[in-house]
Simulated assay, not measured.
Amino acid sequence: MASEVQIVQGDITTQQVDAVVNAANSSLLGGGGVDGAIHAAAGPELLEACRALRAGSLPDGLPVGQAVATPGFGLPARWIIHTVGPNRHAGQSDPALLESCFRRSLEVADELNARSVALPAISAGIFGWDPEAVARIAFATVADYDGGVRQIRFVLFSALLVEVFRHAHRDSRD
């Protein structure tokens, strides 16, 4: 059964879904944009959980294109799936890295038995990726996805991003 895809303008930290995807930095210790908003809304327990990951299985941080989960803490979502998008300004321009972020996030959601996931426009902000490229890669990845997540909601912070994603979604179905 195919997943239902939604595209909405809003605040990812308020979404009533099983899991939200955090466009994290590799340190997992917070940052700006989506990462900062999620850390602020989830509360200090999230930082402690991320520090525990760094002290344990991820001493060098989370690699680009990979994903890991923590509880949602103060968010309505039960889980936060952290993924590190490629940074074009740092020379990370391989589309496979961005595809891996979306794919690995959905795979981690499957491992958690999450049925609904909210995703941001990974790498489309400070990491310098063209929003149209991000949207095309996101929808190509979703089209190839065949797991247990039944609702995939792209939660975008601006009307411009919503329009870019809606256009890419239409094109992906043609």
Rank of each mutant, 00 (worst) to 15 (best):
L106C: 03
D171E: 13
I126P: 04
G56C: 03
H82N: 01
N87L: 13
D174R: 15
E4S: 02
A24Y: 00
S27C: 05
N87Q: 07
A143G: 06
R51Q: 15
L97R: 07
I126A: 11
L28H: 11
A109M: 08
R88D: 06
Y145P: 00
A114R: 08
L28V: 13
D171Y: 05
T13C: 13
A133I: 14
V68L: 10
L97Q: 15
W79M: 02
A49G: 14
R54C: 12
L46F: 09
L62I: 14
E99K: 09
D18K: 07
V149C: 10
H167S: 14
F127S: 02
L156I: 01
P71Q: 13
V21G: 04
G61W: 06
A96G: 05
A121L: 01
G125Y: 05
A69H: 11
A23W: 01
E4C: 02
V117K: 04
G33I: 01
A77T: 07
R51K: 15
A77V: 08
F157C: 02
G10W: 13
G85D: 10
G128W: 03
P95T: 02
V149N: 10
D146K: 13
W79Y: 15
F139Y: 12
G10E: 07
V84F: 09
G128T: 14
G31M: 07
G36H: 08
Q16H: 09
